[in-house]
Write a protein that binds this DNA or RNA. Structure first.
Lengths: 269, 269
DNA sequence: GACTGACGTTCAAAATAATGAACAACTTGC
DNA sequence: GCAAGTTGTTCATTATTTTGAACGTCAGTC
């Protein structure tokens, strides 16, 4: 029997095999996730339909969630959205993360040195989650990106992280066919493999208007873990782009990100 | 029979009376809240003790939570922290909130005009939750405040919102005795009542190093609801403080916050 | 103004989860 | 290197929840 890439010492770790989730716990998360994915007012019946749960079952759940402040009901008590407790866990996730703390200073310095928008992203399955952001102009609202997700294949952050894996692993990690966000999005398997080879070669990843038109990004994986799960990116409007700007960005990323490899031991978790 | 302050049309709204929460749903939230309140690694037994749940019961719950990405187990599978899904609901709470969207432009303008740190806060029980922030210098990390909580009585935001209620209501809303955060924190009931009267008189609230030494805040309730639940504050280091700075801050708050009263109809929820 | 349709609520039977005791695996101390 | 203590896991029994059908309530329609 082949050993898995990472061994578990036999603790609370579902072995991919059969495993019976606690039904009402799973449904609790289902409700929160649906409310998060579509941040609008939902009625009980809408939720019941979306989740394929009998409305009578959902009724008790919603009472529990609203009583606890995780879900907020409007004055009539018939429409639901996320409640304030939901905000807290999000902030706490970031607070408790050692990597975020270590990389935070790097983001500050990058932002100061380049004056462009800087992101810290983490890969989660086939998506990139934005964990932190610095923006000199403050034009964009901070909550506009932290917590948000984009398909990994369409972002510099994602490509920087995917490049750590073999083509075969990448094929398994992503959801095919690849979603197209702009005309520039790489959606062909061969094109993506070539792009990732280029990333391995250069040591950083580039996104040329592949998820948003008018924006280019440069990203480098953060070598705090192996394989890396976090990456840092710098975003620039194409209007401001030039070979010189690219050189400066890559130099800053190299200067600041590469030394983090030495700090790996700090993350004993 | 006396009607409650707010009438419910008989929907999912726990009537304060008896009501049986769904046990495993409540425990799911318990786990997330403990992990959020103490963002460190927890073992199963630690959690079981903290929540007074048999470890065998918790075991299944944790498997469900980790399988869903709301909790992350370390490589050994024996230590737990919040997972990435937790981040998403936090961001989504803010996205889905109409008040935050409306007030966001005001924060941008205040930040531009004053060049000082600006916060949007919401009252939750006896606490103020920070919903958004603008900081010109970017010295402080953004996630250092969004989602964070402080006792209402010790903040300008909190006093601006508490001042909307009668002294009797305030007494019921707060947790007595009041927590002291700095030597300047108002903890005496009479002092607080006098402070709130001053807020009603002036139309804005002041915090003079009452939650952090060296920082003063000025806050005004946002009249989008009645009573208001949100307030906006401007924070200034005492070193930079002067009568003129105070005048400019109060003028800016008055200019930008007061007109929002007309936008109240926008929030039909 | 009664009818129609949609939604939220309640209830008793059927399905599911919680429990504590026992076991296994790891860590610690001597 | 062994024993004691701690932690994670499993299992049958008990307690709880889920479910579908029935009822109440509301808004809109003819």
């Amino acid at each position: 029997m082949e050993a898995p890439a990472v061994r578990y010492s036999g603790a609370v770790q579902q072995d991919l095999q059969d495993f019976q989730p606690v039904k009402s716990a799973g449904r609790t998360l289902d409700v929160l996730e649906v409310l998060a994915d579509e941040p609008r007012s939902w009625t009980l019946v809408e939720l019941a339909r979306a989740l394929d749960i009998p409305k009578s079952s959902l009724h008790g759940l919603m009472r529990t969630l609203t009583a606890r402040g995780w879900v907020r009901a409007d004055e009539t008590g018939t429409r639901f959205r996320l409640g304030m407790r939901a905000l807290r866990v999000g902030a706490a996730y970031l607070d408790g993360d050692d990597s975020v703390a270590v990389i935070s200073a790097v983001l500050d310095e990058l932002s100061r040195r380049l004056g462009e928008t800087v992101h810290l992203g983490r890969i989660d399955g086939n998506q990139i989650v934005y964990l932190a952001k610095r923006d000199s102009t403050h034009r964009l609202r901070l909550y506009s990106s932290v917590g948000r997700r984009l398909p990994a294949h369409a972002t510099a952050l994602g490509k920087a992280l995917l490049a750590q894996h073999t083509d075969g692993d990448v094929d398994r990690m992503l959801a095919w066919p690849l979603e197209r966000l702009t005309p520039g999005t790489v959606t062909e398997r061969g094109d993506l493999h070539r792009a990732l080879a280029a990333v391995r070669d250069a040591g950083y990843a580039v996104d040329r208007e592949e998820n948003a038109e008018g924006i280019m990004c440069f990203a480098m994986a953060v070598p705090l873990t192996d394989p890396a799960t976090d990456a840092v990116s710098v975003s620039v409007p194409t209007s401001r782009m030039s070979a010189d700007v690219e050189r400066r960005i890559v130099a800053a990323l190299t200067d600041l990100i590469r030394p983090l490899g030495q700090a790996r031991s700090m993350l004993s978790a």
